[in-house]
Amino acid sequence: MTEGVDTIARPVLEVSDLNVRFPASRDWLGRPTSHVHAVNGVTLQVRGGGSLGIVGESGCGKSTLAQAIIGLAPYEKGRVAIDGEDLQAAQGRQKRELRQKMQIVFQDPQSSLDRRLPVWRLISEPLHIRGGHSNAELHAKAGQLAVAVGLRPEHLDRLPHEFSGGQRQRIAIARAISTDPDLMVLDEPTSALDVSVQAQIVNLLLKLQRERGLTYLLISHDVALVRHFCDDVAVMYLGQIVESGPADEVLGNPRHPYTQTLLASAPSFASPLPTIAEVRMGELPNNRKLPAGCFYKERCGKAAAGCEAPQVLQRLSDGARHARCHLAQG
């Protein structure tokens, strides 16, 4: 669930008011003079065993959000907590343990696996880093994990280039579940794969979730995949969540104008190619200087009085969803 309301299970991941910015230019002393504002005040929760999908276009900050959550992008403001424990506040050993409670699966299994290490080493790397296991134990553990993701244990001594893209992604998934994580961040896990293989990976991830009670945060641009895969969805635009709620509600009947555009332009068998007017073409605004008021108003076809004011993500009166648009309410 997003925006913490009536959660049944306790949230595994809590992100509150997260802001991530990167220095875009520096003066001669190395001090930043301007920033790229990648994530601008994101608050979300994922409850245990559930899955939250983050949809948006490139540059909307969804990947940076994933990186900040997993600890690859530093953030100045906000809080990320896993199982109620703040990540930024943790130090040393405790921090490493917290980190191993969440794992990430990257988009391209080609680049996320070191091509010089054999599969058993790749799969057992998180355990190897944790320490305390002999190579024989790691090998045996890697064998179990390989079977769990549908790889053959006799392939453990091979190098990644001997595998197809789908099998490599299975290796990456086996590695991610090796530490029995509570949360898995899936950063476009099927985008680099062929269509026929995508389905295998999606099935595998859903099966692992059922078997192990995993909690997923899925980052994707593919609306159809998110609709299929997630309980809840959050749509991002320019570093903000513009609409969030149960997947069938948000993607079935979008209320924020941006979500409507996004859904209209997603390729589909059911609908014809949208007209250019429907797509509301425009570039994503420059995120070095954030616009005042609603971030979407330049492109919005429904812009009206009131859009100059900053929009807040508020719960709509009908249903469980939130939208960041004052027009969506009525």
């Binding site: 600890g71 690859l72 980190r99 391209d108 996320s112 590695r175």
Partner: peptide, 10 residues
């Protein structure tokens, strides 16, 4: 990416 992945494992 594989080095980043390694960092996320601690």
């Amino acid at each position: 990416v594989f080095v980043k992945a390694s960092r996320t494992f601690g």
